[in-house]
Design a protein around this nucleic acid. Structure first.
Lengths: 340, 340
DNA sequence: TTTGACAATGGAAACGTTTCCAGATATACT
DNA sequence: AGTATATCTGGAAACGTTTCCATTGTCAAA
């Protein structure tokens, strides 16, 4: 048997299709008795409105797109979870776009806009070059857009953190703990993709660290700063290098928690003890960090996703972003656990 | 200016809409010259077919749904990445459904089917009760379905592993390494959700372990087996309990890598060394396992996602699943690193 | 030249909603 | 009773494709 349409419902309830549509969409313009009949018919037939038709006719998709570069970074996933969570509560679907090559970005965005497959777009932990945002803005893409974990320079609303300040906080924490010789393990910008995409949080955090060091009159020793690929393994290698130096730091700041885990592993490998011989502080406060007892800088990953979804839904409902929601900075806090 | 429609393209190219449609869909029934004209018009106008209209008319959505219970388990994410990867190469979109309460499952599935929002569904690491599958089957849901990491008892095609055998492999590996006293840290089925959902890989792996133990004539000591929440922290607590026993095991098998990380942490906390005092083996071979140098059982997470997507796409193209693709068991291998 | 077969093309109908306008009915006021 | 007003309802048009059928043009064989 065919899946029932709105017309079947109308017939069964003995009303017109318009009325059924009004009931479905919660219009107040329906008499209670009529609404009741329609609701019954809907239940009896197990009717559920066809999404495509709805979309074609009304222009609404009940779908939000999320566009992200790498799926597997744990921080991305936590943000995604936050988004999914609020979308789910509002009966919105979430479609996931993932960009592999930066060249795709333009085309993909244009396609998404043209196909009208989503009502709005969350640009997650992304990394459009600013000029792309500018172009987007110029080509007047109709799609509401919000950036999470990136700063599109006032072209679009965004939720972001101050990475430089975060780097300072982490460093100052270590200084307060009595450390004078502090190292850094970060992410080198190597691949064309990451570079073009503007993947600079590691750099910014490092910048903050240097500021704090200088301000405290502590040594800024280039030998203690190493940059590699963004995974535990590489971080571990960098850390081993640093810690094998004759004159080695007593604490290491890792640009991401993932890197901090690698540093911890390195400390074990070298037969040292973590808080005692070398302290470690990370950045992000990924879920695993709490289990690993890593002292780190919390940046409200999950919440950033929630907020992004919330704001864009609100934008969809009211027609515009609230002025306060154009430039939302999330607070950072040092979470003290056992590694520093 | 309005976004261009197929009609605009037709007009510009001086042909009929039917012809444009044929060009878009790669029909061979178009003369080369005509095709050329149409292609040019498309490029000039920046036309991109409207998805909703296409869907409504043709019944195809170019979208695959993925339905999963918990977004944040790292193993789910890796599978998802595999799916995303092949979908992307075939220009399919991926929409993510996430189920919070098992009661939703039925309704959600029915909705997804009725709304015709996706062409096919990948039931990921899920956990429908078997009876749900049976019901689904009975209600003759038109949607092609494939299960990844779960076994819907021949009602639907599925990609799965033999968890019992995996548990045996892990245990036998430890035995081969000379261990005689082996503990287990697993996942207790506590919440109604997980229970109904049939979340039994931990149990099955434990079953395999007991088999191996018995077969080798080794002690099956209930004191060495502990079950808790599926996170590092809980695992760490369980491990501390086990390792504080006067008569303690020399090796621990953790049901998931995540748990193994907790066990490793516990070992550190207790001032023991990992391979020497207590060996640890995990299960899953999550990305982080390699960085953590965890010895574990690899179950081809990413590949399972790829396969699921591949098979369902094939099903969409050919109209049916290949017989070989109804019951696909993925091979398991012990990956030897440093923790055991 | 005629016929038949076939390739290429145009365009109407159909897909299932929402929206808008017109009509019907009920209510309130004079 | 008559009129104005407000509420409720029915149904046609529109959304942008795909698909199918009819038509035209071309070529080969008779």
């Amino acid at each position: 048997m065919r899946t029932p349409t709105i017309r079947d419902v109308a017939q069964r309830a003995g009303v017109g299709v318009g009325t059924v549509s009004r009931v479905i969409n919660g219009s107040p313009q329906v008499a209670d008795g009529t609404r009741q009949k329609v609701l019954e018919a809907i239940a009896e037939l197990g009717f559920s409105p066809n999404k495509a038709a709805r979309q074609l006719s009304g222009g609404k998709t009940s779908t939000i797109g999320v566009i992200t570069p790498f799926l597997t970074y744990p921080s991305f996933v936590e943000r995604l979870a936050g988004i999914q969570d609020v979308l789910d509560h509002h009966d919105y679907d979430l479609v996931l776009y993932s960009i592999r090559h930066p060249q795709q970005t333009q085309r993909k965005l244009r396609d998404i806009g043209a196909q009208v497959a989503v009502d709005g777009l969350i640009v997650l932990s992304f990394l459009l070059q600013t000029f792309t945002y500018e172009e987007l803005h110029r080509m007047n893409l109709k799609l509401p857009l919000i950036a999470v974990d990136h700063d599109p320079e006032d072209y679009y609303p965004h939720i972001f953190i101050d990475n430089v300040a975060g780097g300072r906080m982490a460093t100052e924490y270590l200084i307060r703990k009595g450390h004078r010789k502090i190292g850094f393990v970060g992410h080198v910008i190597e691949s064309a993709f990451e570079n073009e995409a503007g993947f600079t949080s590691s750099e910014r955090r490092f910048e903050g660290m240097k500021q704090a060091l200088r301000q405290a009159g502590l040594p800024v020793n280039d030998q203690w700063f190493r940059f590699g690929a963004p995974n535990e393994y590489s971080a571990s290698e960098q850390a081993i290098h640093i810690l094998s130096l004759a004159d080695r730091p007593t604490a290491i700041f890792a640009a991401y928690d993932t890197l901090a885990f690698g540093v911890q592993a390195a400390i074990g490998t070298l037969g040292m003890k973590c808080p005692d011989d070398v302290a470690v502080i990370g950045f992000d406060d990924v879920k695993a960090a709490s289990y690993m007892r890593l002292t780190t800088v919390n940046q409200q990953l999950f919440h950033s996703g929630e907020l992004g979804a919330q704001y864009i839904l609100e934008r969809l409902k009211t027609g515009s972003f609230k002025p306060d929601h154009w430039h939302v900075e999330l607070a950072l806090t040092v979470v003290e656990r056992i590694t520093a």
